[in-house]
Each structure stands twice: as C-alpha cells, then as structure tokens.
Design a binder for these strands. Structure first.
Lengths: 195, 195
DNA sequence: TCGAATGTCTAGCACTGCTAGGATCCGGGG
DNA sequence: CCCCGGATCCTAGCAGTGCTAGACATTCGA
C-alpha cells in the first residue's frame, strides 16, 4: 500500500503547488494575470492537470481564499490576545483587518471580492471561515449593546470591507485612511442601548 | 453647417444607443454578458464603431456608471426631500441607497465594483459623482458629531457599500438584511461627541 | 470631375477557460 | 519473460474574449 500512499502524497503536494503558484502570481501581478496557461507553466505540468485537481479556475481561487481565511483569523486572534476591552478591542480588530487587506491585496480579493463559490453562512461553510467570524464574535459580543451580536459583527465587518474595497479601488482617497478608520472605530465602540 | 450638426446629432444618438444597450444587457444577463460583439450586434454596427466612441470596454462601463450616479443622487435627494432629522434622516438615506442597489444590481456594479477609470475624490471628478456625495453631506453633516463631516459620510457610505456588496455576493445571508440595516442605522444615528 | 478625407466593415491577432482523444508508462496475470 | 489494462499526462483544438490593421466605399471640397 506504500505505493498508493506515495502517489497520494505526490498528488497532495502538486495540489498545494498549484495553490501556491496561483497565490504568488496573483499577489505579484493581480488575478487577471492568473491564467490556466501561466499556472500550468509554473507547476511544469500541462493545463489539463489543473482540472484533475480543481473543477475550474473558480475552485483554485477558492483554495487560495481558504488559506486567506485561516491567516486572517490567526492575525485577528493575535491582535486581541492580550484581552483588550471596549474601544481598544474594536480598534485592535479593525487595525488587524485593514492591515491584513493592505498586506495581501490579492488574497483579500479572493476572499471577499471574487467569485469562489465558497458557502458563507451555511451549514457547509468551511471551518477557517467559521473561526474567523467567531473570533470577531468572541471579542465584540459584549460591545453589541442591545443589538443582536451576530448582526452587530456582520455590520462591523461590512463597514471594514466597504472601507477596504472602496479604498483599494480608488473610490476613496488613500490620504486620510487612518483618520477614517478612527472615525469608524469610534462609531462602533460606543455603547448603544443597554448592553 | 446644418449638415455637420446633423452628423454630430446622429453620433450623439449612437453614443447613447451604445450606453443603453450596455446597460440593458448588463442588467439582463450580468456584465460578463456585455461583450463588444454582442454590443455591436445590438446597435447594428460593427465592433470598430464602438471604439470610435469609447476608448474601450472600460469607458463604456464608465458611461453607464455615470448614469447610475445621477439616478442614485436623485433617489437620495427625493428620500430626504421632506427634511428628516436625526435617525430618520440616516434611515431614509440608507434605505434609498440599499433599495437602489437592489433594484439596479448591474448599474451598482458599474458604479462601485468594476474598473471604470472614473476619478473619485479628485479635481477631475464628474459632476454627478460630486453631487451624490454632497447630498449625503448636506443631510448627515450635523449628525457627524465631533467627527469631520466628510470622513463621517465616507464611512457611512463604506458601511452601506460593504453591506450591499457582501450581501449581493452571497457572503452575507439575505435573510436578515433589513434587521442588519436597522442595526447599522442605529450605530450611525447616535450622537458621538459634542456636535 | 477628381483627389482627399471621412466613415465603416472584414478579417485577423493574441489571448482566455476548458476538453476530447491519443500517447505513454507501469503494475499484475499468464 | 511478455503482454495487457488502467492510470496518467500531453497535444491539439474549440468557442469565446478585447481590440486593431487595412481595405473599401462614400461623400465632400476644390
């Protein structure tokens, strides 16, 4: 059986090779530059091999996105590791989120902009995704005030995503980015209703 | 000179024909379905004609987006025509914005998602765009509290855009959409600092 | 009436995601 | 040992994309 195991291992290795190549290519030259031909050239296999690992380009983007969710969750957890509260907690998460997006623009696009087919708020939602949301929930739960914590987290995430995506597409000037984030944090750190 | 004028008029007419065709096609089958071949078929001219009116597909999307900005501005102005204040004003604008996005998804994408090359916060920013922003400023200026009104409007817009785009891409469930918007309005309608 | 400018179209380029069908290699049975 | 069956991989190609060079006609000004 060791033979089959080796083959399986090699397959898994090649699978990861594809994902890594896609990610690097995207981060270096944008997702438009990630074509099946270029990918196949990088991994030194022909194009059809890609389709023996993934159903199509969409699924490759999805695989990269999954890596991103794991990393973003780790980053946010680290940001609130020392147990900040109130405004400090909101600020820590917001900073971590925006920094992550700034540092990994292509990764961020895969996660939140491109069509990956990943199910989000669903019973089939992958683990890294759930954990990201729960990290936010754990830290922001008591800040929600009278609002439903889940909904509160969702609109906090929405606001951050809006800021990031509008800035990155040039629709908001980069100039006042940090002050803008401050104002946003202020808004969400205030106590609303009786917690 | 009437001859040249007629030609000019016909040219303008065809220009508008292209924009209308692009918009209809996008709204009916998504922007992926808007190809230069299909467009040229609709307007009953060959493809190169498109390039005598626009530099490329990007500019066509941009022209559609411009229409969108004018309409969105009109919608929001109407929403605050009766001069609401405080929470009512925020809610009116938020509802108008989200409704507009819901009713014109392809138009919304052209405005806020796709690459159009339109300059946003710039001296070259087109008028319909400026007016949209100023409509928000006029209504929300005194709600900003101690924050810079412009920045406040920008993060309000960001939050709305985040909500809309995440919902439309399936990353937020449609189910609780209206409650989610309520929570968001609550957050932004509260007084922060001393106005 | 003739040359030039204008307008339009045909045909084609280089690229995209994706796939059918043929070649090649390798392990197990006779 | 040979040879066959199945897995693996590649070549070649499809239909589609945005965009453009160059030919063609038509129409204008001298």
């Amino acid at each position: 059986m060791s033979l089959q195991e080796r083959k399986e291992r090699e397959r898994a290795h090649r699978h990861q090779l594809i994902v890594a190549a896609a990610r690097e290519l995207a981060e270096a030259h944008g997702w438009d530059a990630v074509t099946t031909r270029r990918l196949s050239e990088r991994i030194e296999y022909s194009q059809p091999v890609l389709y023996s690992h993934f159903r199509g380009k969409r699924e490759i983007v999805g695989a990269v996105a999954l890596e991103g969710f794991a990393e973003l969750t780790a980053t946010m957890r680290e940001a609130v590791a020392n147990g900040p509260e109130g405004r400090a907690a909101v600020a820590a998460l917001a900073d971590a989120y925006v920094d992550f997006a700034e540092r990994n623009p292509a990764l961020y696009d895969a996660m939140f902009l491109l069509d990956t087919g990943l199910p989000f708020a669903d019973e089939a939602t992958p683990v890294p995704l759930r954990e990201g949301f729960e990290t936010l929930l754990d830290t922001l739960g008591d800040i929600a005030g009278s609002a439903d914590p889940a909904l509160f987290v969702e609109i906090f995430w929405s606001a951050l995503h809006g800021l990031v995506s509008l800035t990155r597409s040039g629709r908001l000037p980069r100039q006042e980015a940090s002050r803008r984030l401050d104002v946003l944090v202020d808004r969400f750190a205030e106590r609303g209703g009786d917690g």
